[in-house]
Each structure stands twice: as structure tokens, then as C-alpha cells.
């Protein structure tokens, strides 16, 4: 039998609907998991195994390979995706909390409504006022390259949930995820609504709450740079308005 080692966890628990056997307020609960020594499992795999110990532990997950963006959580103080985080890279006890600043529904599951409302505000779809051509709208490879680093976002909310400006004004500041998508369509040469998109963002909150602290860029599990995209939006606004 393979040699085993013990991994320690401290997990945020909140089960408002639970019966009298659990506290009706948030608390941290310690867990231990025996894993084969030297095994380098992903945090999500560990969480699934912990759920076998205590089936009430709740979290979202789907693709388990960093594509769906369901399992964003705060891991040892930094937001990330559990499915692509190696437990060997983490200091123990591994402290897992829900995404900061979002209302907690249960354990590691947060309410994403406001996040999606901000995303909806930037109208994340192509707008073209010219009559549609017979075939698809063509784009040169150079113009297509302008969308690299923008289109890859999986909406896991790791960025917006690490942004203090989003914590304080989640109803008014679009947040890094939404703004990255806003710029994805502003930069798209097939989109003809650029001026209208920029006008919709020029109030004191939507874009300009960003103070450039780059938390979003430092946590993005896909390696994207929302701060740079926000800078580009400001530059486009200046070009339009100067």
C-alpha cells in the first residue's frame, strides 16, 4: 500500500438553512485528507474527496479543467480556480473561502447576480448597423489579433471579486471582468457601435472607479490583463473626446 500523507484544510462554512446541529452563522471548519504521498492532486479533487467525508460541503464545479469558470474561490487569501490549483503549491492548512465581496449563498457558493448584471450592461455582443453581408463579416488576421487576450475570459469572477472598487460599488462599477469584455467589443473592427459604447461608460463610476491596483491581473487564472484593457478604454475615450 502506498505511503500516505495528511493534508490540512480550513474551510469557510455557512449554511443558513441548516438544522439546529450547525451554527446559523459563518464559521471556519477544519478538515484532514489522507492522500498518497507525493500525489499532486488539484484542489478541486481534494474538495470532492472531502465531500465524501462531509456531504454538506457545498461548492460549484463543472468542467474540472479551468474552462467553465465555476469553481472560483479564495484559496489561501488569493482568488483562483480550484480545478487548476495544485495542492502541492499551497501552504497548509489550506484556507478556502468563498469569493470575497459577493453575498454567500452557502459555503463556497456565492450569489453572482450583480456580477452578471454588470456584464450585461456592456452589451457583450457584436453590434453592426450595416446590412448583413451574404456570408460572414470578414476580418484581417491583424484585426483579429487585437482580440487576443480579451476573448478568452471565462467569467469566473476571480478578478472582480478581488477588486476593492467592485466591493464598494458593485452596483455602479462595471468591474474588471465586464470591462475586459467591453473592450473586447470596442476593439472589434466588425463592431460599429464604438462611440455609443464609449459614451455609455463615461460616467464617474462605470470605468473610472478603477484605480489601477492590478489585483485583477494578478489573480486572473487565464493570465489576462483587465487593467490594460481598462487603460485602452480610457485611451479610446480620450481619442474620441479630445
Amino acid at each position: 500500500m502506498a505511503e500516505m500523507e495528511t493534508i490540512k484544510f480550513s474551510i469557510y462554512r455557512y449554511q443558513p438553512e441548516a438544522g439546529s446541529d450547525k451554527p446559523n452563522r459563518p464559521y471556519m471548519e477544519d478538515f484532514q485528507l489522507e492522500v498518497p504521498k507525493g500525489s499532486d492532486m488539484m484542489l478541486l479533487t481534494a474538495l470532492i474527496q472531502l465531500k465524501e467525508q462531509d456531504e454538506t460541503i457545498s461548492f460549484r464545479r463543472a468542467c474540472r479543467e479551468g474552462v467553465c469558470g465555476s469553481d472560483g474561490m479564495n484559496i489561501n487569501g488569493k482568488n483562483g480556480l480550484a480545478c487548476i490549483t495544485h495542492i502541492s503549491e499551497l501552504k497548509q492548512p489550506i484556507v478556502i473561502r468563498p469569493l470575497p465581496g459577493f453575498p454567500v449563498v452557502r459555503d463556497l457558493i456565492v450569489d453572482m447576480d450583480q456580477f452578471y448584471q454588470q456584464y450585461e450592461k456592456v452589451e457583450p455582443y457584436l453590434k453592426n448597423h450595416q446590412p448583413p453581408p451574404g456570408t460572414e463579416r470578414l476580418q484581417s488576421p491583424e484585426d483579429r489579433a487585437k482580440l487576443d487576450g480579451l476573448y478568452e475570459c471565462i467569467l469566473c469572477a476571480c478578478c472582480s471579486s478581488s477588486c476593492p472598487s467592485f466591493w464598494w460599488n458593485p452596483d455602479k462599477f462595471i468591474g474588471p471582468a465586464g470591462l475586459l469584455q467591453a473592450y473586447r467589443f470596442i476593439a472589434d473592427t466588425r463592431d460599429t457601435a464604438k462611440a455609443e459604447r464609449l459614451r455609455n461608460l463615461d460616467d464617474p463610476y462605470s470605468v473610472f472607479r478603477c484605480r489601477g491596483i492590478m489585483n485583477c491581473t494578478s489573480v486572473c487564472p487565464k493570465g489576462l490583463n483587465p487593467t490594460k484593457a481598462i487603460g485602452e478604454i480610457r485611451k479610446e475615450m480620450l481619442k474620441e473626446e479630445l
Binding site: L201, D202, D203, P204, Y205, S206, V207, F208, R234, M237, L238, E241
Partner: peptide
């Protein structure tokens, strides 16, 4: 706010 316009304030 000073100008009520984010870009101008900025």
C-alpha cells in the same frame, strides 16, 4: 461630483 463626467474628472 466635480463635473459628473468620469473622463473629465479623470
Amino acid at each position: 461630483s466635480l463635473t459628473r463626467n468620469g473622463l473629465r474628472d479623470w
